[in-house]
Design a protein around this nucleic acid. Structure first.
Length: 625
RNA sequence: GGUCCAGUAGCUCAGGGGAUAGAGCAUCUGCCUUCUAAGCAGACGGUCCUAGGUUCGAUUCCUAGCUGGAUCACCA
């Protein structure tokens, strides 16, 4: 009987069972009209006894009774008729239900040894997650870190939710930006290399990008005070526009029409596109440096990819898809020969997809790349992790693919995340406020090292082991700080707060896990079968088990919404409950062998879930700290 | 100007048609001879941007406004 009860309950969702119980109760007490109303079942607030709460206000009209009376009758009925409900109490029309200890107990015993608890079985669907996708002209910065962490965590969460996941990025390795770095190195580099200067190679290339901008700026300033510059200002400036304002706005035009450096950079791009050997060679060398540097950063950050797409291979793609769309009438040609799509009926305006000279645009390339990836992987879902400044672009892209009837069109999703601001405002490369990814990791790991310095808990470990733990702690602080925020929201990154290790932080969660491991170490090999004799649970135990119970639904929710912050918040709350449990109850010196066994099983389960959960958001868990 | 997103404690953020709106940081106060104090407990702190509307009930949903941001290239 007990066994049957336990099996039946673990396969059914607790909440669903309670809801249908409430429906039955309403039917029995007040008839079909009451039973037809929706059941509002919420988790009971901490300050009241019970686990789930039924709100009775909606039934007053049909039942013709006061909320308190309804709640009382409902509670009594459920306690009497539903084995799952062991008790109830009524407060101001809210009926708080307590779930039977036997349910919690048997649930715990069914999962505590399962290190994969929470993971869903394969659902047979394939999904691709694109993230990072940097330009190769400068190193990664804080914005990329948010992108990378979100992309990687989302991929892991989708994997745990049952998908077959492919992680990819498109490396923007061509175009005018990298030509600027190349040109500056060629003109001013005097043959220096990352090795000869002892510089991390992506930073080395970035230095020349900055150098180009400096030289260009100097050239522009000279020109502004030249006779040509003054004439242009006199002719083109708007009424009352200051020279500063005018020349700021005129910068792009100057680059394209007057600048010597601009001319040379553009020439370099043309040479590259024509396949000029020396240019391609230089391009390969400098990009090679950048990849080596990026690789280091990715490794350290703990992210990886299944396949890399290079823009240099894909930038001409998409023309065949345009032809197909021409045939089906999705696109049309304007008098000047340019090709367009009219999306005004989707509230999206007209959009060019080919220039009048027939060359591709950004959107053309993305159309082609989507198709290529479908051919490569046969995925029916694609997630693009790209900042929300490109919302419009993706709306247009997805709408076009939909109209073209692409088989994966319904599965496209733009995981748009908000920009990362500093306490002083937006990051600006011109003002040198861009936070470099490598520096940031150095800093946060340095803080972890300082905080670990005189801890006795790890004093017997080797230097290498200590370093590994310090890395894990520092990165946990950084990653958790970023991932706990809902991706959609713009966030403020305060470097001071990001290295905090107390409170709502990664190390706080790690510490809860470390405690579960510490007690397990101390307990040694032990037969926990007596745990089943611990039948009367403490509230602290029920709280924890109840939270463990919701873990699978957390994974589902995070996957459905592409939102790792759900998992981060869950891990924090579980850790918090465990820290309190740790403080309130003793484990190894509990009153009976049954209780000791039960609490050890509980620790094991909490440890498993904390590890699984944190791993889902890309955070490693040390056994000691 | 059009479109989209956001506005919750001094700061960073959760939450969400339901009970007295929650955490962390910061400030102040207790708790380590007992499983790791990177911990626990307490105090302080609110016009949930404003005004209407729907509802038994709105901080949550709707409308309008205010504020901040993004975007509206034959750029990427």
């Amino acid at each position: 009987m007990i066994l049957f009860y336990f099996c039946a309950m673990t396969v059914t969702d607790l909440k669903t069972t309670l809801e249908s119980g409430v429906k039955d109760a309403l039917m029995a007490l007040y008839g079909p009209d009451a039973a037809a109303l929706p059941v509002s079942l919420q988790t009971t607030r901490k300050e009241f006894a019970g686990n789930y709460t039924v709100v009775t206000f909606p039934y007053t009209r049909v039942a013709k009774q006061k909320p308190d009376e309804i709640a009382e009758k409902l509670g009594a009925y459920l306690k009497e008729n539903l084995e799952l409900v062991s008790d109830y109490n009524v407060i101001k029309g809210f009926c708080n239900l307590s779930v039977a200890d036997s349910f919690w107990q048997e649930f715990l015993l069914s999962i505590y040894e399962n290190t994969d608890y929470g993971r869903q079985p394969d659902n047979g669907e394939k999904v691709m997650v694109e993230y990072s996708s940097p330009n190769t002209n400068k190193p990664l910065h804080l914005g990329h870190i948010r992108n990378n962490l979100l992309g990687y965590a989302t991929a892991r969460i989708l994997d745990a939710a049952g998908y077959e996941v492919y992680k990819v990025q498109v490396i923007n390795d061509r175009g005018i930006a990298i030509c600027k770095s190349m040109l500056a190195w060629k003109k001013f580099g005097e043959g220096a290399t990352p090795a000869s200067t002892g510089t991390k190679p992506d930073h080395f290339v970035g230095k020349y990008y900055v150098l180009f901008e400096q030289k260009f700026k100097a050239e522009y300033l000279d020109w502004q005070s030249s006779s040509v510059g003054e004439a242009v200002y006199a002719e083109k400036a708007k009424e009352g526009q200051s020279p500063e304002a005018f020349f700021k706005a005129y910068k792009n035009t100057y680059f394209n029409e007057y600048s010597q450096l601009g001319q040379e950079a553009k020439q370099m791009l043309q040479n590259w596109e024509a396949g000029d050997e020396a240019t391609v060679e230089l391009w390969k060398t400098m990009n090679g440096w950048v990849y080596a540097g990026f690789g280091e950063t990715y490794d350290r950050l703990g992210v990886d990819f299944d396949k890399l797409y290079y823009e240099s291979n894909t930038y001409l793609l998409g023309k065949d898809i345009i032809e197909k769309g021409m045939a089906s009438g999705t696109f049309f040609t304007k008098e000047d020969g340019s090709t367009w799509v009219d999306l005004t009926d989707a509230k999206l305006d007209e959009k060019a997809v080919l220039r009048s000279d027939g060359t591709s645009l950004y959107i053309t390339q993305d159309l082609g790349t989507a198709q290529l990836r479908y051919q490569d992987f046969g995925v029916n879902k694609m997630v693009y992790v790209v900042a929300d400044e490109q919302n419009y672009h993706f709306q247009v892209l997805f709408e076009i693919l939909k109209r073209l009837g692409e088989p994966y069109a319904e599965g496209l999703h733009h995981l748009n995340y908000g920009m990362v601001d500093l306490p002083t405002g937006r990051m600006k490369s011109r003002e040198g406020t861009v936070v470099d990814a490598d520096d940031l990791m150095d800093e946060v790991i340095g803080e972890a090292r300082a905080a670990s310095a005189d801890r006795e808990t790890t004093s017997d470990l080797s230097a290498e082991e200590k370093e590994r733990i310090i890395d894990q702690i520092g990165l946990a602080a950084l990653k958790f700080f970023i991932l706990k925020v809902n991706p959609k929201k713009r966030m403020v990154f305060d470097p001071k707060e990001s290295v905090d290790m107390q409170g709502q932080t990664g190390p706080y969660v790690q510490n809860a896990y470390v405690r579960t491991q510490a007690v397990a170490r101390k307990a040694g090999e032990r037969d926990l079968s007596l745990a089943s004799q611990h039948t009367s649970l403490e509230s602290g135990e029920v709280d924890l088990i109840n939270q463990l119970y919701t873990f699978p639904s957390i994974i589902e929710e995070a996957a459905e919404n592409y939102d790792p912050s759900v998992v981060a918040t869950y891990c924090y709350e579980l850790a918090k409950a465990f820290h309190k449990f740790w403080h309130d109850y003793s484990i190894l010196s509990a009153e009976s062998e049954a209780t000791i066994s039960f609490r050890l099983a509980l620790c094991k389960a909490v440890g498993n879930v904390l590890r699984t959960g944190m791993n889902l958001i890309g955070i490693d868990m040390p056994d000691r700290m």
